[in-house]
């Protein structure tokens, strides 16, 4: 690991000031569960590490009339355990609980989770000069790509590995971003960006910006959410495919629906056509299969990841059907 400076700002303003001054040579650290593995492998070699944990007040979950505010430093474990979240946003609680292991959930934060870097094994090997690291090729395209993207790849086939991101997108969450220019709010769906836009990054944060909090709209009556994560082993595993769904149950179907996938694309992947075809119809396995058809036609599997298309169907079906199950 390369030598680096360490700083413990006391306020967001100080943190941003450090960021701005470092001119792209600084990294933010929250729980460090992702950052440190990157640094140890030499994938990132910052001059300065800014420890956000020293800033008070960023680890809380609060409900007000605008919605539920989740501070960037809230640990994944406390999100999973929060009683209000469990009640109003069961899918989010499940997504948090499905992530990594108890040790990692105790340390890892929501902000770190939403800004974590991809797990692509070519990207994570410092010796591989891949596109995401500024090189000229994507080794996954014709290499070992069992865990890679079936949607939205193009020039870089990473999948966005976060369990919270697809669920929060399905819940129409917003992120609050702080920078020397002040604060801005963005729908989380617009926070993430495809490789075609900037292959070096997975989101639209500028080098001097950080995520301060996530805000979820207040849960509407009758709206439910669910998260189904398919993995290879029972725990300590990223999603092969995950389905984050939200819907308002009416009759035997959904009057509105959000279906967002994890593990299949460089960003949380929203299935707009599927959502539209589900609306107002009686939910059944057959309906979901039919509704998925148009979106799944856009899948572009690589040599070793075609099975993910099948997994999408299983995950989405299970997640949606669980919404109408009696509580």
């Amino acid at each position: 690991m390369k030598n680096f400076q360490w700083t413990e700002p006391q306020t967001i303003e100080q943190a941003i000031a450090w960021l701005a001054k470092a001119n792209g040579k600084a990294v933010l650290m929250a729980g460090g569960t992702d950052l440190f593995t990157e640094m140890k492998e030499g994938v990132v070699e910052p001059d300065l590490v800014i420890d956000l944990k020293s800033i008070p007040g960023l680890a809380s979950i609060q409900k007000d009339k605008d919605g539920v505010h989740i501070g960037a430093l809230t640990t994944v474990a406390s999100l999973a355990a929060d009683a209000m979240i469990k009640l109003d946003y069961a899918g989010l609680s499940a997504a948090a609980g499905s992530l990594a292991t108890p040790q990692l959930r105790n340390v890892g934060t929501v902000g770190g989770n939403l800004c974590q870097r991809p797990r692509c094994w070519y990207y994570r090997d410092a010796q591989m000069d891949c596109r995401k690291k500024g090189g000229s090729q994507c080794f996954a395209a014709k290499g070992r790509n069992k865990y890679h993207a079936i949607f939205g790849g193009g020039i870089c086939h990473i999948v966005y590995p976060s369990d919270l991101a697809p669920m929060l997108v399905a819940l129409d969450a917003q992120v609050t971003i702080s920078s020397p220019r002040g604060e801005r709010n963005l729908p989380l769906a617009e926070f993430y960006s495809l490789p075609a836009k900037n292959v070096r990054r997975e989101n639209v944060l500028a080098p001097d910006e950080l995520v301060r909090e996530v805000k979820i709209p207040l849960a509407k009556k009758g709206t439910r959410s669910a998260y189904v994560k398919l993995k290879e082993r029972e725990t300590w595993d990223f999603a092969l495919v995950s389905a984050a769904v939200r819907g308002t149950v009416s009759g035997g179907g959904l009057s509105d629906a959000a279906v967002v996938l994890g593990g299949v694309a460089p960003i949380p992947w929203r299935l707009g056509k599927t959502e539209a075809s589900l609306k107002g119809k009686k939910l059944s396995q057959a309906l979901v299969k039919e509704a998925l058809r148009a979106d799944l036609q856009e899948a572009r599997p690589l040599e070793e990841n075609g099975y993910k298309v099948e997994l999408v169907e299983a995950a989405v079906t299970r997640a949606l059907l669980s919404l109408t199950r009696p509580l």
Partner: peptide, 24 residues
């Protein structure tokens, strides 16, 4: 897991070389 294109092992760590956990 080996990559014929680069001659390298792509999973030389315990996150991607998966071993059963107690839950399995």
């Amino acid at each position: 897991v080996l990559d014929e294109n680069t001659g390298k092992m792509v999973n030389p760590n315990l996150q991607t070389y998966k071993i059963a956990t107690s839950m399995d």
